[in-house]
């Protein structure tokens, strides 16, 4: 996450792995730069979105981890990097 390795269990959602590793801020809002984290944990609210492997706005609570995934704290609406 943001360049630092995070251990995860096979198949668990990104959000679970990050919370287990002590990360609770997943993104910052576009206008006021306020922190956001997990709110519903079942893929409804989109509060926990991050940039995953260059794709912004990925719902981390319902997206399983994969080895080597690059996860970035999302700034605002995020940006496609590929």
């Amino acid at each position: 996450m943001d360049g630092i390795p995070v251990a995860a269990r096979t198949g668990e959602p990104i959000a679970a792995a990050l919370m287990a590793a002590g990360h609770h801020v997943f993104r910052y809002t576009p206008r006021r730069h306020e922190p956001r984290g997990v709110f519903c944990a079942i893929g409804r609210c989109t509060d926990c979105i991050m940039t995953v492997d260059g794709v912004p706005n990925v719902r981390t609570c319902v997206t399983p981890v994969r080895p080597g995934m690059e996860i970035r704290t999302q700034e605002g609406l995020g940006r496609w990097s590929k």
Partner: peptide, 19 residues
């Protein structure tokens, strides 16, 4: 703020994902 979440969300995290 991160740390405010649904009770069902907490239940999902604890019982399904064990976090």
């Amino acid at each position: 703020l991160p740390g405010v979440l649904g009770a069902g969300a907490a239940q999902t995290l604890v019982n399904l994902h064990r976090v």
